[in-house]
């Protein structure tokens, strides 16, 4: 059963990629992108295994719905043409055909089972990560994000850079003053809550979107496979500056991450310092 679904995914993936080539020729996109692109048609490039799996399922879904929509439209237009009053002046009086009614009930059920099985598997896969190596906490505020690294005793606020203060090359409404820094290829647990109204922590390239609800602590996870600057936004209306509280995540190598933690004065950095120089503590 498992192999069957892998095979199906591969098949649809190949179909999709070969057609995507045509789009690439028409709308050249160079390499891997960590942000939305002008005139983009589909998802942002996947930077986590979760988003890759979402992409796989969506590819299947897109083909299924594309075929259904085209089939219905074509059948409708053909029927309108074939049975136009000029071609068919005397209407039939047929109003029942048990066989065809059974067919158009059963086939959709089969299609739904076909997409339901990989869909359920995805839901359970996305839910939790077994062994998180790093935990961070994103707390929504009107209108900025506060980040905590509870294991490191680090916390800071992250505000959007106003359009007037942007440096050349920075992206309007996406760049923040203090981005989150995370290591690549690490299981990261992201907890989120809110200090006031409901916000939503969403980073499309990671396949993450989790509402930040006051009084609740929700959990999502990511294992980011490529370094770079990633962007997210608030996805739940939260008042006047809802559009202006972006999320910027700088994904770096493990060494650079440890260095950053040290600079920030994380707990581990302090512990390491005391190990090397015990008398100072």
């Amino acid at each position: 059963m498992l192999d069957f679904w892998e095979y199906i995914k591969k098949m649809f993936g190949m179909l999709h990629r070969s057609l995507a080539l045509i789009f690439l020729v028409l709308f050249p996109v160079l390499g891997f992108c960590t942000e939305p692109e002008p005139w983009q048609f589909g998802f942002q490039d996947a930077a986590t295994p979760v988003m890759e799996k979402v992409n796989e399922l969506h590819t299947i879904l897109l083909w299924v719905i594309f075929v259904i929509a085209v089939f219905v439209a074509a059948l409708l237009l053909y029927t309108g043409w074939r049975f136009h009053e000029k071609r068919n002046p005397i209407p039939s009086k047929t109003t029942h055909n048990t066989l065809i009614e059974v067919i158009w009930t059963v086939i959709p059920v089969v299609i739904l089972i076909f997409i339901g099985i990989p869909s359920l598997r995805l839901i359970y896969y996305m839910d939790k990560v077994d062994e998180p190596e790093i935990t961070i906490k994103a707390i929504g505020h009107q209108w900025y994000w506060e980040y905590e690294y509870p294991e490191e005793d680090i916390s800071f606020d992250s505000y959007m850079i106003k359009t007037a203060d942007l440096k050349p090359g920075q992206k309007r409404l996406l760049e923040v003053d203090r981005p989150v820094v995370l290591p690549v290829n690490t299981n990261i647990r992201i907890l989120t809550t809110s200090a006031d109204v409901i916000h939503s922590f969403g980073v499309p390239a990671f396949g993450i979107k989790q509402d930040s609800v006051p009084g609740r602590l929700a959990e999502v996870w990511a294992r980011i496979t490529k370094t770079g600057n990633y962007y997210g936004q608030c996805y739940e209306i939260c008042g006047m500056n809802h559009s202006f509280m972006p999320i910027q995540i700088k994904v770096v190598s493990r060494e650079e991450y440890d260095q950053w933690i040290k600079e920030k004065g994380g707990k581990k950095a302090k512990a390491d310092a005391s190990k090397n120089n015990p008398t100072k503590l």
């Binding site: 409708l76 049975f83 136009h84 009053e85």
Partner: peptide, 9 residues
């Protein structure tokens, strides 16, 4: 669609 099928549209 089946209502249209065979009708005089």
């Amino acid at each position: 669609i089946a209502t249209m099928w065979g009708g005089s549209v």
